[in-house]
């Protein structure tokens, strides 16, 4: 671990009110239309390995009321931790199950989806929203159906989350409990809410 540099204090929204609104509409659109690439210009920056668009998503959703969990690659950077502390004031948690939001830049090594907060039967909203880096989003691969999807949608992200199909089916089986995913590419967001069904066979 290294000391915090001035990078922690850079990269916030230039126009906090309007930039947050623009980014939120993209996030909302992405969750309301699962599997669709919603284009979103990054309006913020953060220290590596956090991407500018992931930074914008964090600034839009996270604040002192939302416990945040960072994956190993992010947590290893004192600048990233400093950036979160300075820009959002969000409390950091060690256990994925305590997080309202989780940020993942290394999907290949992330904990299973079941390790995050799943909500309760009475309050299924008390679950983790995962914001996951995607180098690329392809409209091939797995087929999803469900709310927000007119017929069906194909999509796949790289790098992949290990055993994603099995994990997603287990997540969907918990409905209305379960986690929601936001995949963040360089200039686009793809949402995968817990309501999406993975078509098999």
């Amino acid at each position: 671990m290294t000391a915090v540099t001035s990078a922690a204090f850079d990269g916030g929204f230039r126009q906090p009110v309007f930039d947050a609104q623009t980014t939120f509409r993209a996030i909302m659109d992405a969750l309301a239309r699962p599997g669709r690439r919603v284009i979103c210009r990054p309006l913020a920056t953060a220290p590596a390995p956090m991407s500018p668009l992931m930074a914008a998503v964090a600034l839009t959703l996270v604040d002192p009321e939302t416990p945040v969990w960072l994956d190993g690659a992010l947590a290893a950077s004192a600048d990233v931790r400093g950036w979160f502390a300075f820009q959002t004031g969000a409390p950091m948690v060690d256990q994925p199950a305590d997080a309202a939001f989780a940020f993942v830049v290394d999907p290949a090594r992330m904990p299973p989806l079941s390790a995050f907060a799943q909500g309760t039967p009475e309050y299924p909203d008390r679950s983790t929203t995962l914001v996951v880096s995607a180098e690329s989003v392809e409209d091939t691969g797995a087929v999803f159906t469900g709310p927000g999807i007119e017929t069906s949608v194909l999509f796949d992200t790289r790098p992949a989350i290990p055993a994603f199909a099995e994990q997603w089916q287990a997540n969907r089986a918990l409905f209305p409990r379960g986690v929601d995913l936001l995949f963040v590419a360089a200039d686009a967001i793809v949402g995968l809410p817990r309501s999406s069904r993975l078509r098999t066979g």
Partner: peptide, 20 residues
């Protein structure tokens, strides 16, 4: 902005759990 963020988070949960 703090209030908007709180409402926005609730909207996202609502979308993810239709009708809840």
């Amino acid at each position: 902005e703090q209030t908007k963020r709180m409402i926005r988070r609730a909207i996202l949960k609502g979308i993810a759990i239709p009708g809840y």
